[in-house]
Structures are given as C-alpha cells and as structure tokens.
Design a binder for these strands. Structure first.
Lengths: 218, 218
DNA sequence: TAATGTTTTAAACGATCGTTTGAATTAATG
DNA sequence: CATTAATTCAAACGATCGTTTAAAACATTA
C-alpha cells in the first residue's frame, strides 16, 4: 500500500462527510479528524472550505461529464443520418454518473453529494456547478431537440427539468429506495437502475402535451 | 393591521430563511433579527432550533396533506366503480402543494423549503417528515396500485420515487426554471405547471418496462 | 389594587466555527 | 553538505453558534 498524499486524504474525507451531512453541517475539524491530517493543511492545500468543496466536486464530476459527452458523440455516430434516439441520449447522461456510484473508490458518497448539490442554494456553489456543466447543457439540449423534433422548445426545457429532478433524487436518495423496494441500487443493479430511469424519463419526454384546462389570463 | 404574535413572527422569518439558505446555514440570531423578537423567545416558544424547524414544516404541510387526501377521496368517488385515473391521482398529489406556492402568504418560501427537505439528510428531520407523510404514502401508494393494475409493485415504487424527484426539484428550483424557459412558475401559471408535471410523470408511469440488456448476475 | 401567571428582555454560558500565524519538520536542489 | 523550498504542526485569533439564566415587563385574575 503506497502512501496517500495529504491532498487526497482531505478530498476523500470531505467527499464522504459532505455527502453524508451537507456542506454547512460539516466542519473542517470533522474532516481533518477523518483524514488524519492537520487542520491548517486544508487552507494550505485548498485555500478555503468553499474552495475545497469545489475541488471535491470537480475531481469526480469532470471525468464524468467528459464521458457523458463522449457517449453522446458515439450515439450520434452510431445514429449516422438517422434520427438520434432519445434513449441513447438519456443513457449518455445517466450511465457515467451512475457508474461512478457503483465504483467502490468513489463510492456512493460522491453521487449522493451531486444529488445534494443540485438542491443546495449556496450561491457560489451554484455558479460553480453551472460553469462545470456548461458544455453538457449545451450539447444535451441540442441532442434533446434532435431526438424530439415534434416537441416545442419550451416543453423540452420543462421536461428536462423534471428529468433532472428524477435523476438527482435517485442519485441522492438511492438508499431510501432500496429500503423501499428490497432491491439494492448498487453493484450489478446499476444497469437495471439506469434502465428504469431511462424508461421513466423517456416516457415522460414522449408524453402527449395536454392543453391546460382553461387559460383564463391573457 | 392587527398585531402579529411572537410565535408567528418567528415562524414566518424561519420559513423564509430556511428556504433561502437551509437549516444549518441559518442561525437563530438571523431569524430573530428578521422577526424582530428577542433571541430567547425562540427557546421559550419552541424549545430548540430543531423543534422550530419541525413546526415551520408542519404548520403548512399538514393542511396540504389533508387536502391531498381529500382530493384523492373525491377522485375516488368521481371514478365510482370505474378504474381510478392516474392523472387524477397525480393531480391530487401535486395541486395542493403547488397552490401553496402561489399563495402570497405562504409564498414560494415554504414549497422551496419542502423541496429542500426532501434532499436533506438531517436524520431527525427525515424521521419527522416520514411521520408527517405516513397517511399520504399509504393512500397514494394504494391509489397508484389501482390506477396502474398492469404494473408490478416494484416498478410502481421505483417510478413513484422518480416522480417524487421531479416534483421536489420543481418545488425547490422553480426559479431556475423560469430563467430558463421565460415562463414564470407562479400565479396564473400554477395550473399550467401542474399540468406539465402531470403529463410528464403520467407518461413516465405508463412507459413500457424494458427488460435489462443482460441480467448476468444470478 | 394586590397577587399570580405569562411573556419579553439583556446578558452570559461553554462550545465550536473558519481562518491565520510562525515555528518545526521534511524534501528537493545546488 | 549547505541552502532553499515545500509541507506539517500546535496554538491561537476573533466571531458566531445554540442554549440558559434570572430579572424586568406585561397581562390576567381575585
């Protein structure tokens, strides 16, 4: 077993604790206790608690988002001149991050953290997340447009929003669900979970758009 | 304008701040400053910060959950001996809480708070929320079973989970979405938002269940 | 009005927070 | 080996946290 450097020890401990309890509920002293490093090491290596959080996120999120874009590119190539398939777009979006969940090294901690982050209203964090996701948002927005040529742009945006909620909740609260359904949402069940999420969200995207009961205003 | 009692002033301020920044990020001193009451009043009236949070939630959540059950009961009666309609079940679940969002008194604060709470990993809060939702979970679980007689129980549970994520995200991050789509998710748009969420989630519930590519394990 | 119960208040409690400092230690470089 | 740079460390900084106390102010009832 080779020596793990201080930076990594801090990142691992912070990842675990932030995912478990949230950013504000975790102190740097909690983190250095788990990481078994000195308190001042956090500021030496990362500068601040907020900067540490950003590093915790980007360390795992960047490779995941790269792979999302790769998978989408592959799906495009495979489709050729045929229409891009909605299920392929969704799989490109879900699979890389859910596979990170099954990875014993990153573990369930990180994906849970990502789920939490989506619902966190830490302004700096939101700005940071948006910047990390810029390219993914652009490319997948285009992809949804292509895969759903008969759906209005506004509706696509709303349904992308709903889809993001379903995904985030599943990432964050997978444990609640396994209590619920007796199936465990990890390991070999990974593909099944992703397939279930694809089925549901694809069904949602393809649902008929009903006109509202009465648009009294305007 | 009649005098607002201290308890209500604290509840209102806490609701606003918890929704804005989250439980851990808000101090009692932040709350009493907004509420314009003495710091010790919080413990005098509520006992602790955690107990205050529970009260903030239950004050608005209980009437909402009562109305959800009422609407579900009405939907059942209207259906008579016909099969309960999925859209009616979903509307019973969504409408009462989204209407609270449009209510200028409760405002967007509370629903955002509820959205956040779903993703919060405060153990005591989770237990409390579960106890507040017991009857709703029982009745709506039954209703989904009735409305989807051809869908396996396990699949219903998973899809209920996805649906909850879509709902929570919409409650919590409605503002992000209105930036996105230029439509505003309040006021007269209430019915439209709910209808969109019904369309999406109903489509998800009704989607075909695809067998996983290969169930290698087992 | 006197007595009793309820609510509000200022002040302090010990604990913990993120961050900074400067010296001790280790690693790298000439 | 000497010197410089990088890292670790114990200790402390001021600020803020949730909670408690006990007296003051107010309201209610006899």
């Amino acid at each position: 077993m080779l020596k793990v450097d201080t930076k990594t020890k801090i990142l691992d401990a912070a990842e675990k604790l932030f995912a478990q309890k949230g950013f504000d509920a975790v102190s740097l002293r909690n983190i250095v206790e788990i990481a078994k490093v000195n308190l001042a090491a956090v500021h030496y290596h990362f500068g601040s608690k907020q900067a540490l959080l950003h590093k915790v996120v980007s360390r795992r999120f960047r490779p995941i988002n790269k792979e999302r874009l790769n998978m989408l590119e592959n799906a495009r190539n495979k489709a050729g001149k045929n229409k891009l398939k909605l299920e392929a777009v969704l799989e490109s979006l879900f699979f890389p991050i859910f596979r990170a969940q099954a990875n014993p090294k990153a573990g369930i901690s990180f994906t849970r953290l990502i789920g939490r982050v989506v619902f966190d209203r830490n302004k700096e964090l939101q700005k940071f997340m948006l910047s990390e996701l810029t390219e993914v948002i652009i490319q997948f927005s285009k992809a949804f447009d292509e895969a759903l040529p008969n759906l209005e742009k506004t509706e696509i945006d709303w349904r992308s929003h709903f889809m993001a909620g379903a995904m985030a909740h599943t990432l964050c609260n997978a444990d609640l669900l396994s209590d619920f359904t007796k199936t465990n949402a990890n390991d070999s069940e990974l593909e099944i979970t992703v397939q279930r999420l694809i089925d549901f969200t694809a069904g949602g995207f393809r649902a008929k758009v009903s006109k509202t009961p009465n648009t009294k205003k305007r």
